[in-house]
Design a protein around this nucleic acid. Structure first.
Lengths: 132, 132
DNA sequence: CAGTATCCCTTTTGATACTG
DNA sequence: CAGTATCAAAAGGGATACTG
């Protein structure tokens, strides 16, 4: 079994097809982080610990199924912690791990860039539309 | 028509549902940037101008349909430039716009983080698996 | 070469109902 | 409360054939 991530530049990895190739796990990790709900969960949890139902409210529009799926994926990746209190009714809290804090920062940087530059993007779309 | 992006903190926008709400265009922009092919195209073009067929080779596995669709989306967003030479056979070159260069940097930062920290993520997944 | 058009299959997602 | 199970709807994406 060869290491799919030798020490070479990122663009070299792209050329070699290692980065994000179908069989590279990084693709899945990136997907979970940049999916709409994954991204929202990471950003919401930057503000602190949240319960399942809090997250449902904060990530407006998410279904129970998708939220549960998203949380499980991020937890498996080690980006968030799940702490269940053994009480009835159930009480479960989610929070970012140190790894998740780092990840959330990058994701937030990207989302922030889009928010800040959205006017420029919208202008580009309008200009293009007007030209037709 | 009210401005969906007033000057308030990002987390306030999330709470208000403005960021990435179904009817906010930022969601679509982010989606194009973080889609597998969108991300790859942005990163490949960081190395310089490429022709359509070059991109097909560089982004191994992409279909003509998806590449064309991706390029049109990124072009409409003002992230890449399309320059068609009026010759036969056709010759079309794609490159990053100044806006696209900024965007590509953020995307690359995220992808780099995932690549660098993949071992930590994989370890988290393995640990979790072993605990069952 | 650089696409577009069409068909079809797979994956994703949402609604709803149910459980510990 | 915090999920799981199930089914139907919708979107995503590939293979192929065709065009300027």
């Amino acid at each position: 079994m060869t290491d799919p991530h030798p020490r070479e530049s990122l663009s070299d990895q792209i050329r070699r097809g290692a980065l994000l190739s179908t069989d590279c796990p990084s693709r899945e990790v990136l997907k979970r982080m940049t999916s709409l709900w994954g991204l929202l969960v990471l950003m919401i949890l930057r503000d602190g610990t949240r319960r399942f139902s809090d997250l449902r409210r904060a990530a407006a529009g998410v279904s129970e199924k998708m939220l549960a799926q998203t949380l499980q994926g991020l937890e498996a990746d080690g980006l968030i912690d799940r702490h269940a209190f053994p009480v009835i009714p159930p009480h479960v809290e989610y929070s970012l791990t140190p790894l998740g804090i780092e990840a959330a920062e990058r994701v937030a940087a990207l989302a922030d860039w889009v928010e800040v530059n959205l006017p420029r993007v919208m202008e580009a779309r309008a200009t293009r539309l007007a030209a037709e």
